[in-house]
Design a protein around this nucleic acid. Structure first.
Lengths: 257, 257
DNA sequence: CGTTGCGTTGAATAAGGTCAAATAGAGTGG
DNA sequence: CCACTCTATTTGACCTTATTCAACGCAACG
């Protein structure tokens, strides 16, 4: 399909019209990617990462609102967020819908598809985004040659399991305020790890999507944002969030009840 | 106690001074294990499974109430349930506790530990049980030689992710009755896959553990069992469950609200 | 045969959900 | 640039669901 080089068959007419991406691609192989320490290559040696460069050569732009894949699509690749922001959600036969995760740069998407060779959730860009395509068969292949890559991949999957269990904990035991506090702290920490401010950021998702993820209704999310604001914990202006009292938010979590 | 063999002190057994278990072990290598099609070897060829036999040679008995591992324990092995029944749970600093899963024969436990080299949850036997110990370093090693084992292992991890996302869905969008109906149907289906009755079984866990898993209080679980019984969906006597109307339970799930 | 842990049931309460209305922004087309 | 539209958000009033608190029953066990 979308080869790494632009349709070589075409004459000059739209050679460039098609995208300058090639050049861009050269700059963004794993070995020189700024997300290297957050993404699949985490912990690999320079030499090992260079192997990865052969594997991850296709990138794909997804516009805001578009799906990267849908439940039921055949699984072929994993995707690393290169830039932008995604959500994943599940839809039940009866129409119920639950956001199962938000994904930011460096995070791997599509792990759900390995088990059945079909994706089991939908993944949608919440802003114009770009992903690195990791053909899974080739990842397994390469893992075979680069032992540390194999190990690293296992760790990525395991961490995803642990993350999901954390969400189960949140949904199973926490009250609405605690859930939202935990959510904000989690975002804060992840932005921080990517070199962004951990006290001030832009929410890419709607109140409804936050609510869906946290098992709450959008009105409840809105009310709690207002409450946190009254209490001086955060400042909220639509999607712009400023955390004023990180410790205060943390304290919300500590109290079993 | 119910050790299948007396302690190794027995004379003459020096060569196999190591335990009469050996005999037992021979009978229960993966290649001749009745759980073969449910467990890690699923889908592997006879020859491939025989490789696994070199790997999985230790088994371990865990008595009811004992932990297989605890959060924070160093991770070294995965465990396949050979017989019995387990639960996993997470405990937050503030004491909150959530059951994150129940495990029955053929299921793999310990995947949470790969990411950090420490277990992140506790896993406890709910009845006297036995597990097959799968040293993880050797599994990675062997996966390197037996490609299909590698693939199979990846599928196991991926399915665990999908399972967890199903639980997120349950906790995030379902009402109490739906949660319990889904829980019963899930158990039913898993018992069925193992050759047990799918309409009649024994719950190994308490109402509190069910509630913890489903994000409900034990009283709520109890009330809903009573309600289901009144409605003729199930017959409940303490931990003994008989499902009288599977379709009725399924119908509970279909209705978005 | 009392103790202990687990399960059931009832009544009161609180946390979130539902419904409805008002407001605020972002994007669009004139 | 402005009016208009559409969607997201906020807020209030009321309602439903599950929790809390408390009492009691049951079965297993020493």
């Amino acid at each position: 399909m979308n080869q790494q080089n632009p349709q070589t068959g075409r004459a000059g007419s739209d050679a460039s019209s098609h995208r300058t991406i090639n050049i861009h691609q050269l700059k963004t192989v794993c070995s020189s990617c700024s997300l290297r320490e957050l993404c699949l290559p985490m912990g690999l040696s320079q030499e090992e990462v260079e192997y990865l460069d052969q594997l991850v050569y296709t990138r794909k732009r997804i516009k805001r609102g578009e799906n990267l894949y849908r439940a039921g699509d055949p699984f072929g690749s994993l995707y690393a967020v290169r830039s932008g922001f995604f959500k994943s959600n599940l839809i039940l036969e009866d129409g119920r819908d639950q956001v199962t995760g938000f994904h930011m740069p460096g995070e791997i998407m599509g792990l759900d598809g390995i088990g059945t060779d079909d994706h089991t959730c939908n993944t949608t860009a919440l802003e114009d985004s770009e992903v690195c395509v990791i053909p899974f068969a080739r990842l397994e292949e390469l893992g075979h040659q680069v032992r540390n890559l194999q190990k690293q991949f296992h760790k990525v999957m395991s961490r995803e399991i642990v993350r999901d269990q954390g969400v189960m904990m949140l949904l199973g035991t926490m009250r609405a305020e605690e859930r939202l506090a935990a959510f904000l702290l989690n975002l804060s920490q992840r932005f921080n790890a990517r070199g962004y401010s951990h006290t001030e950021f832009h929410l890419r998702m709607t109140r409804e999507e936050i609510g869906s993820y946290l098992g709450l209704k959008l009105e409840t999310v809105s009310r709690i944002f207002s409450k946190f604001q009254e209490e001086g914990l955060v400042s909220v202006q639509q999607k712009h969030i400023r955390i004023l009292d990180t410790d205060g938010l943390k304290r919300m979590l500590g109290q079993a009840d």
